[in-house]
Design a protein around this nucleic acid. Sequence first.
DNA 1: AATTACTACTTGACTTTGCCTGGTACCTGA
DNA 2: TCAGGTACCAGGCAAAGTCAAGTAGTAATT
Lengths: 118, 118
Amino acid sequence: MTSGHDPQLLKGVLSLLLLHMLAEQESYGYEVVQRLQAVGLADVLEGTVYPALARLEREGRVTARLVSSSAGPARKYYRPTAAGYAALVTGTATWTRHTAIVNAVLTRPVPTTPTRGS
Amino acid sequence: MTSGHDPQLLKGVLSLLLLHMLAEQESYGYEVVQRLQAVGLADVLEGTVYPALARLEREGRVTARLVSSSAGPARKYYRPTAAGYAALVTGTATWTRHTAIVNAVLTRPVPTTPTRGS
DNA sequence: AATTACTACTTGACTTTGCCTGGTACCTGA
DNA sequence: TCAGGTACCAGGCAAAGTCAAGTAGTAATT
């Protein structure tokens, strides 16, 4: 195991990521999944994104509009609301502060790393 | 609220933090809570730490030993095992990679921040 | 001796949120 | 009409932090 992927690390950050991506460019669920994969989050599948988007809409942070497509069913385009932009700002600040604290701890040297296997 | 504290952000990172702190210095639950608060994680209470510690022990990443105290009940000192040190290394790598991706997205400029209320 | 207070650990119910599986439906092209 | 890609949704599950309450041990105060 050279590097794993801990799904838990996504908690709380996903909605922030979604908000940011939608602020960059309005888009629909299916596309968001592809954008996430393009960024390196290949493990984030539809079953994760759609509920998250629905949650954001329910909370009033994004609005949706249906746009019919010529290549399949109608797409539901999402875009942040004013509240969404506000949440993006405070959320980013929280994230920054949080990672700063975690990194401060994790970069401290560990005295010895004894190879006491067994 | 200028900046909130999202409890979800702790998910997945707490055990890593714990592992690192215990690698720095062997300690017991109650003390770990105080060390976390000293670092800036004031919202992490006993009910969060003890279960996390128990989980780490159950997973074989830390070992515990009881030491009687002269100022209260016996303390349960935890220390990482070899597997714990390994988990610390891979976990830190995963965390670093994860935050790099998230930051890459979050630092991208957002076109406009219209004040359009819904 | 009894009360109080601080230390220290434990437990269980609750909530959030991501994961997984599978289902529906639209559209195009063979 | 059937296959396949696009697009969305729903239900149930699991992981992990939160909260509140409970149990004890020790020591100082009364």
